[in-house]
Amino acid sequence: MIEVKGLAHSFRVGKKGKETEVPVLKGLTLQAADGEIVSIVGRSGSGKSTLLHILAGFLQPDSGRVLVDGTDLTAMNEAQRAAYRLDHFGFVFQNFQLMPGLTAFENVELPLTLKGVPAAERRRKVEELLESTGLSDIRSHYPNELSGGQQQRVGIARALITEPPIIFADEPTGSLDSETEQDILLLIQSLNRTYGITFVIITHDDEVAAIADRTYRMHDGELAEGGLRHVI
């Protein structure tokens, strides 16, 4: 359960001394129930990524609160937020963000390593997950030896490995062709159904919004419930 209340954020831009405040988020409210796929759509530059960064705890908002299962993320310091992310969140990025020096297997293993899970248990879990996501064949490939779709599958597997209740995805299919996009969306849908994982997906793509249980539209720093379809 994610609840966002009165979230406002502005960036200071320009040269030092002559900065101007650019308000990006203007006191918005959002809710995501457990097991929902929530999509956030909006024009480029409307502040979608900024919102996600705040939800994920990468960025502290100027004001407002982000409650995850009743825990206020905005009241935590950096280290606490990092620890919280490790236990509760998974991330899927538009450009995959795999570690170039690690194999597919090691990339998926990384969050467990960070958590301090013993090596034997890590190996078992990763093998299981690679098997079920059809990645076993590419386990020893490095990211630059994988296609975009394969990389994103590895990225999703990495987000899943800690079995987090919530996965954030910023344009997860933004770098993929439409066929691969369909595969990924199906994977997300099945994970959502099978494990009840809550997804918060940012997109400007109809296809993505179509699998969402709830869609928010970002406009002018405000959030309105109701998807692209309603706007169009």
């Binding site: 994920a56 280290a79 992310r85 490790l86 236990d87 969140f89 963000q97 020096g101 990384l110 960070l114």
Partner: peptide, 16 residues
């Protein structure tokens, strides 16, 4: 830098 960013995003604390 990018790798550090990913590590932090995944949940590596500043101390680590």
């Amino acid at each position: 830098t990018r790798e550090i960013g990913v590590m932090k995003a995944l949940g590596a604390g500043p101390k680590l």
